[in-house]
């Protein structure tokens, strides 16, 4: 029971990076199979910091190590992270 509850909690923490709150650090759980994302280090288990989301369908701004990366809404919605 306790384990099931923990697992549920764990699962509810999964969120796509576009809708994840700003200024927090996340661990990537799943990212689309895109060469450029892999290259920039946005792969499973990578640590990313979300800086902000741009309004009116703009991109999200992430920080991976010292590098800032802007990712369009369409892709950001498919990057699933854990809080």
């Amino acid at each position: 029971m306790a384990l099931a509850l923990r697992e549920q909690e764990y699962k509810t923490e999964l969120v796509d990076i576009y809708h994840a709150p700003d200024n927090l650090t996340y661990v990537v759980e799943d990212a689309p199979e895109l060469g450029i994302l892999k290259s920039l280090g946005i792969v499973k288990d990578a640590i990313v910091q979300k800086i902000m989301t741009y309004k009116l369908g703009g991109p999200v701004l992430l920080q991976v190590e010292s590098c800032e990366i802007a990712i369009s809404k369409d892709i950001a919605e498919k990057i699933i992270v854990r809080g």
């Binding site: 450029i36 994302l37 920039l40 991109p59 590098c67 800032e68 990366i69 990712i71 369009s72 892709i75």
Partner: peptide
């Protein structure tokens, strides 16, 4: 299609 932006700043 047009690929969405992924840009290193």
């Amino acid at each position: 299609k047009v690929d969405p932006m992924v840009l290193e700043i």
